[in-house]
Structures are given as structure tokens and as C-alpha cells.
Design a protein around this nucleic acid. Sequence first.
RNA 1: GGGCCUGUAGCUCAGUUGGUUAGAGCGCUACCUUGACACGGUAGAGGUCACAGAUUCGAGUUCUGUCAGGCCCA
Length: 834
Amino acid sequence: MEIEKVYEPQRFEPHWAARWVNEEMFRVEAEPGTPYFSLAIPPPNVTGSLHMGHMFEHAIIDALIRWHRMRGERTLWVPGTDHAGIATELMVDRQLQAEEGKSKRDIPREEFLERVWKWKEKNGGRIVEQMKASGVSCDWSRERFTMDPGLSRAVREVFVRLYEKGLIYRGDYMLNWCPRCQTVLSDLEVEHEDKDGSLWHIRYAPGLVVATTRPETMLGDTAVAINPEDPRAATLGGTKVSLPLTDREIPVILDNMAELGFGTGAVKITPAHDPNDFEAGKRHGLASIQVIGEDGKMTAAAGAFAGMERFEARKAVVAKLEELGVLEKIEPHKLSIGQCHRCRTVVEPLVSTQWWMKMKPLAEPAIAAVRDGRITFVPENWGKTYFHWMENIRDWCISRQLWWGHRIPAWHCAACSEVTVAREDPTECCKCGSKDLKQDRDVLDTWFSSGLWPFSTLGWPDETADLKAFYPTSLLVTGFDIIFFWAARMVMFGMEIMGDVPFRQIHIHGLVRDADRQKMSKTKGNVIDPLVLNEKYGTDAVRFALLVSAAPGGDIALSETRIDAERAFANKIWNASRLLFSKPKEGSGAPVSLADRWIAHRLNEAAAAANRCFEQHRYDQTAETLYHFWWGDFCDWYLELKKLDEDWSFAYVVYEQALRLLHPLMPFITEELWQRLELGGKTIAMERYPLGDSAPDPAAEEEMAAVQAIITDARTQRADANVDPKQTVDAILSATGDRLAVAQRNVDAISRLARVKLEFRDEDPYRLKLALKVDRAKVEKEIADLEKIIANSQKQLSNEGFMSKAPQKITDGMRAKQAEYEAQVAKLRTALSE
RNA sequence: GGGCCUGUAGCUCAGUUGGUUAGAGCGCUACCUUGACACGGUAGAGGUCACAGAUUCGAGUUCUGUCAGGCCCA
């Protein structure tokens, strides 16, 4: 069979990607009770497109999934997407703005939601199409979306259950508010960044100076606190001071939140705009005056400053204080600024009524599950991070002031203000029976529905066959950035709702960075688009480059040269196939030469290593092992030697196995080549993965090593003498016994690969002498190097401590090596003396 | 402030329970268009394993400290 000289992945990948999907090759039936491997995809945002992080994560998952499937396990990879509350809402809002000059608040909620759904129908499939094109082996018949009717029912059921259990409640607390997105944010959605700020010292009264980083909030102060131990406590405690810029008097209270000896010793208290002050306000029964509104502008309560944007108000307040002469000093001050993780707007702490989930009772079983090993982390170090967060967990604010998402199933009664929470939409108040009900405006945090993903995708709350067959899932593969957002919450939901872990292992992978180890970001402009790479180098090359770089837990510095190297690897395999396919397939299918026996041994070793590395989540080592097997063993040595044989049938056997070994890492090229063998199977993905459990052949390994050593020796001598590779050189090989026999047996192999015309001499010591001039300087350096090594090992061998304490295996090995070094030196000296 | 991680060849990274000349890819040097492949072949150069100390017969690997860098949480 004649095939093309250069491998062009672009010609084959789309074809196989489509076949795998169209023929539903990875569809799997639920058969409860049979061994399985299942995994739910970390659902990408429906608004997104495939980025390098997805590509990497999917390369890992797909390799594992394909490996398990080829091991004969009932293997399921559930695909799907996330509705991604804020992200999607922002996107559609922006589009509305651009196309019609309207904001979402200008149109009714229902109309806006309709638009989002339309947008989703039209564009939501993009990332899914990209995944399909990249060849991931998901069961597409089970594709889910977090807002599918089934998954929405799961969300509602969980909400109601937890509410009935008292684990979901409503309450007024201080929260992070994004004035841009107009919604509360959970602690996790706020990113802290250290910035240079100022500390303004303001004199509220003689001898009473407070320091603040946010002077504009003083308008909402309702007290000043000093430490009870403060010398001023006796005289000032309980008195009132007049709050500058306002006509209000505020009390001086005693509270040890004012740290003794720190700053001015006095702190202003603004219960409406600072979390600590909010607590202090509750402790002391202080009023709360909101001077900054949800829009980030000063409220009517800010008096003369009302209507100003908050940062403008800051400047105005400072100017006014200066004018009044009560601004004592301004110090530079580093402070940590909270920003909305979506839009980078500085968040404003505000008090509001929100829905909360009690986390302590949910965290306990989740901690236990990891402690006692029902869930393990890979690398296990991440367990520490998990415990640290779980053990200090705080209640989760689950309501968001958005429209796109799962609306909270709670109805407020206009008559008695009772809240009715129900599985079915209620028609009357559960307390007074009034029909005047209004559903809560808010939706749930996106992570609420993704937290249910491992079981909601399998059909829960129905008791489906899928659930019985595939839950708990086997593994979660995800990035460290969403351990808390997602992984931890899935564990809590899984334990609470299913009474069992959602997955047995959590594999945490690193970040894909650019070649200079910089985080990829749109603003830096260093984002690498996987689709461009896939098109340019082939998906297989990109996947392989990612996997071979994926040391556990480590980030990946992705360079195009690395990917190019893997493209060359694919091309190498292609060309090895070209050679093979030019030879007849027919024959015994059994080894006919040393080369055959040796490659069988090496194949077996590579297979054993590949399986072992997969089990240990060392995809990088699996990749490296197979790379060297294919290139180093199969191409460089085996095929070269095989050219001496007539019967190539065994080469086909080895080749076919080697394709299977590589399939999970390079699915496309292996499928294409495997199909060309015309063995009749539907896809290589359904063939069995070689286990590497055949009997080893140490004799073949040893003899081959001897032959390789002779060939390398000859090649080195040729290179040292700068001989044209084509030129055949006369050589004399001196040896006795087995050594001579091996060389004589393999004279054809040696002659061909070393391009020598061999003459044998039955004499000691062993030596291969080519009819060439010796590079004396080089040999002398080699001798010097060896003598250093010999001196070292001599020193150790004569060390009594070493000889008496080191294990026999080591000392024997050292002695053997020592003898080898000495023989080498002797050989080199002989060469020099001629 | 609390916690986690990293420092190995020019670059990007491996290095399993401490053990025999510290590896890979790219880059570099020399020779070669050899009937699969120049996206290739063969041979090679290049490392005081951040620094200091400790444990040990033996440390890139374990421990302590220092320096440098990164990340997470508050």
C-alpha cells in the first residue's frame, strides 16, 4: 500500500472526529452491578469557546477514558455545559447594549430571559462542536446543560430539602456587592489585590483622632470605639462627639476592636459599610446608616455629598475635612482591595437580605470522606488545602440578583410576609392561605447547580439505571482554581443528598502558561488559541505535547517548539508505517529473528510501564515511555534490523500493538493507521489495551544489548575519524566464547547498521578495531574522565563503612562497574599505543 | 499575618522507597539527501543539581537555616 510521504493531520482528524460522534462509538449502556469507570466533565461555560485550559484538561481526561475503555471497563464520560450565571448575563446584556442601545433593566425580565435562551440555542453549541472536533470520547447521547428541565428539577429538589432541614435560611448580613453587576458576590467571587492607598487621620474631637482608609464612609459613622484599657476610656467612654461634616452626635464606646497602641487608638464605626463594624454595631446596638447605595453612589443620607459617585465623594470629603482643619495627616498605606472577579469593579460591602446555606454540618461528612480515604487527592498534597478551607468554612450566600439562572423556589406572601418554599409552584401562602404570592426575585449562585453535577447528570432525583450504574463517579479531573468553588461543594452535596462521595479521586492539574511561564490573559495578549494550534500541528501533537509536559500538579509552559516536536513524532510514526506497509503482511506472525524477539520484549516492557503510569496518573511518563519506544526502539533499531528479514509478519503484530498503546494519547493518527491494517474492527478505541504481562525475554534483551554496543562502538569510531556514513570500513573484532559467538551470529546486523566489513579473531581481550586513524586527543580525554570515575569508585570500595553497611546488591554492582571501567581504559590505551 | 509550592544543561522541564558515569524535548557542533522519514540519520559538546550546615558508608533526593521566585487564604 502506498501512502503519502508527509503526515497531514488536517486530512484525517475531521473525518474521524465526525465518525466517532455520528456513529455514537462511545455510547455506553447502563448495566448496574458491572465494573465501570465514569467521569462527569467539568462543564465549560456555555458562553465560552475552547481555550488551552480545556484542551489540557480534556487531553488528560480523554487519555484516561480511552485507556479505561480499552481495558474493557464500562466507561462513561458525561459531557455538558454550565449556564454560567453572571458571565452569560453580562454577555447578552452587552449585546443588547450594542445592538439596541438598551440595558437589560430596560426590558422585562421574561423578555430578557427569552433573549438569553435564544442566544444559547444559537451560540451555546460552539464549545461543544469544538470539543467534538478535538476528538474527545464523550457519550454525546448523555450531554447535559445545567438548566435542562431535569437538572433544574434536581436543583429545586435539593433546595427544598435543605430548606426543610433548616440548612438553607434567609438573613441580613454584610456582603460583597458589585455595583457594576448589581448583585451580591460570595467570598470566593471576590479577588483581593494589594494596592497603595492612604490612611487619613481625622480629628473627631480634641484628643480623639481616628484613622481610616475610606473617609467617605465617615458620613455613616454611628460611633467611635476606643479600647477599654485606653487611658482615655474613663473620661471619654460614654460621652458623645460631634461627627464632622454632619449634624449628628455619635457615642464613644469601649470595645477592644480598637487595638491598644495601634494607630491612633480610636476607630470609627460604620455598621453599614464595613464587616467588622457591622459586627460591632450588633454588639453595641448601634444604628446603621447607609451612605453608599447599590449603584455605588452616595445616598440621601450623605447629605451634601448625596448623588456623588463613591470615589468622587472620597475626594470631596477629604477636601472638606481639610478645609475644616480636622485632617491631621495622610499616611501612605498598603491595603487589600476586593474586586469583582468578573468585571474587576471594586466591591462595596453592603448589608442586605439574602439566602444562605449552613456549611458546617455539610462540611463535616465532606472532611471525613477525604480523611478516611473514600476520596483521595492526586497529588495528595491538595488534601491540605481542602482541609484548611473546609475546617474554616463560612456560610455560603447562594442568592444572586440576576435573572439568568435557577430562580429561587420561594414565594413571599403579601398578606403575612410568610415565605413558602415548595417543590411545585404554590397557589396560596402556606401560613395564611392568601393567594397574593410573589416569587423571590433572585436566582441561585451558578455553583449551586454545578455542585449537583455528578448525580444530576445521571438523572437524579429519579432513581435511574444510570445513577445505579455510574454513581459514585470514578474520578474528578480539575484545576486547583475551582477546588473550593466546585470540587468541595460537590463533595458536600454528594454526601448530603446521595449519602455517598461524588467521586473516588480528585486529580488536580496545573495551569497552562505561555512559553515564558506567564499566565495567559487577554490583556497581556499572550493567549494561545488551541484551535489554531490544532489546525496547524494536529490535535494529536497538541495533546501529546500537553500530556508529556504534565508532571503531577505542575504548571505547563507551553511552547510551539514543543508541539512542533510532537508533530515530528506523528510524522515519524507515519513514515515508519510507510516502510512497514511496503512489506508483505503475510507470514507466520511469529518472531523470526533476534530483532523480533527483542522488540517483543521491549513492547511488553513499554506496555507494562504505560499501564503502571496511567494508574499513577503519570501521563507524562506514559507519553515519554511510548515516545521512546516508538522512536528509539521501534524505528531506530527494530525497523533498521528488520530490513534484513524476509518475513515481516511479526512486525505487523508488534506495530498493531504499539498503535493501541499510543491510542489514548494520539487518538487520530492511531485510528487512521490502524484502519489501514484492515483488521475489520470498528475502531481501535474498542480494541484491548496491551497489558504488558507476557513473559520477558532477557536472553534477547542481553544479546541485543551486546549487538547494539558493538554497533555504537563502530559508529563512534567512524564519527571520530569523520568518515562518510556511506563508506564501508574494514574492521577486526577480537573476542572469545559467547561474546564472539554473539557477534558472529549477528554479523549481518552489525555490518549493515555500522557499515563495516567484519573480520573475527578468536582472542582476548575484547576489541573492535576499525581501519581508521584514531583521534588521540579525544581518546586521552576519555581515559582521563574514566580514571576520575575509577578513582572515585575505588575510594568508595575501599571505605570500610561502605563495604560493611551498603547492601550486597550495591557493592556487587559497583565492583562489576569498576571492572568495566578498567577494561574500557585498557582498550583505549591499546588503541593509543598503536 | 497563616498556609502551600518551586529553584537541576542556553531555554522549558523530568528525576519514583537515599545507591552504580544526573535524563528528555528544543537549541548548539560535526559528518551525511544512505530506497520509510532532512518534520530525517549518526556521533558529540554542554550541569560545583540556588547557597550554608546537619543526618548517613553514601544526598539532586531526608532535615534545619539563608537567599530568590510563584500561588492560595485572611
